[in-house]
Write a protein that binds this DNA or RNA. Sequence first.
DNA 1: ACAAAGTACTGGACTGTATAGTTTATTTCA
DNA 2: TGAAATAAACTATACAGTCCAGTACTTTGT
Lengths: 210, 210
Amino acid sequence: MSSKRDTYRATSKHTAILNAATEVFLKSGYLGANMDDIAKSSGVSKQTVYAHFQSKKDLFVEVVGRITDDASSMVHDSAQASDRDDDIAEYLLSYAIRQLTVVLTPRIMQLRRLVIGEVGRFPELAKVLYERGPQRTMKALAGVFERFSKKGRLNVGNSIVAASAFNWLVMADPLNRAMLLGDNAIPDADELRRHAAEGVRIFLAAYGRS
Amino acid sequence: MSSKRDTYRATSKHTAILNAATEVFLKSGYLGANMDDIAKSSGVSKQTVYAHFQSKKDLFVEVVGRITDDASSMVHDSAQASDRDDDIAEYLLSYAIRQLTVVLTPRIMQLRRLVIGEVGRFPELAKVLYERGPQRTMKALAGVFERFSKKGRLNVGNSIVAASAFNWLVMADPLNRAMLLGDNAIPDADELRRHAAEGVRIFLAAYGRS
DNA sequence: ACAAAGTACTGGACTGTATAGTTTATTTCA
DNA sequence: TGAAATAAACTATACAGTCCAGTACTTTGT
């Protein structure tokens, strides 16, 4: 806790450790990872690792927290051009494709697997991943839908319900396939686009106004 | 391999070991589980465990395979009353509720977490889980949809695409919540019914014929 | 029926290895 | 000179898998 900068402990080593630990944990899981490996692969002595992080658990929590944050902002940074009066179908399609493209990467898939496998040991991490992942996405979408709805361009009762429907219409199938079948099951850009388009079509059939 | 019944090795102990191992693996994960615990909790000596199963890996594979099979048949055994000329909405709703009720149990959720966490070490198990889970469901649904479609009561292009859409409209949100937020996030029967109804509504808006 | 022979099982000690975290003596560098 | 870092040895524990000596059960031949 408190501050890692109590004295002049090198920032570069701190991040070197975090980076190495990230790779090791992603590859081997929490129990499978080993602190000697992490130290060696950070180019740092084991003692230094323990100078920067109190324990394996602490290190793991920081690692997962950091990737989760990074991934979350990657998803939500680009584009928020919500209010444009363009074709709604167009808007939803590009939203869907961006979402799919960002989330369906080996790294984020592996993070999900890791966190899900450790729900028992680290329930907090999974909760945070849910909040910064699906939940954050759905809240953002719900806001957009409400605005569209007020302009009479969408017919949405409960905007959160609609957002969840849209989100999972788009994400669920490829996400679940990739989770269980591995990175080879990640669809290519073409398939992604077709899948996203069908999701948009279904959504607009249920919530559209025209 | 070959046969466990080469001689008169007791079936009761075999299943006692499997049952105990199931609990231990579900609770602690693959690496977290420990063969002494499994032996003790089977009421059997460690030597006997190794007489019935060659190694921890073998035992794990059998355990996961067995729960997967059980779960899969639980989902697919009850009801296949497809061709009845009832209300389609009614049919879909009951299908959805049954599916949700069977899958959203702590045991099956924990199995999914376990298998997902071990995709790296045991990719085959995850593949089998996918095939006997979502894939099997979607194939069955696709068959039903095609029949409805031929009778002109549904307007489905690619039946697999439609089946996937329906399946995930119904399953994705509660499944993902429960995966990450734990068993407390499993919705009660009322919530389940409302969620299923909205899924059916969306699906019929896109694929219905009326 | 009965005994001999083989098979299953037990309990516990044992081997070998892995690994989280600590300690110590030494070196680097500001 | 003094904090930060290093390397390497060390502690303590955990655990997969094996070995062994002895007990109990099942089968088979008579």
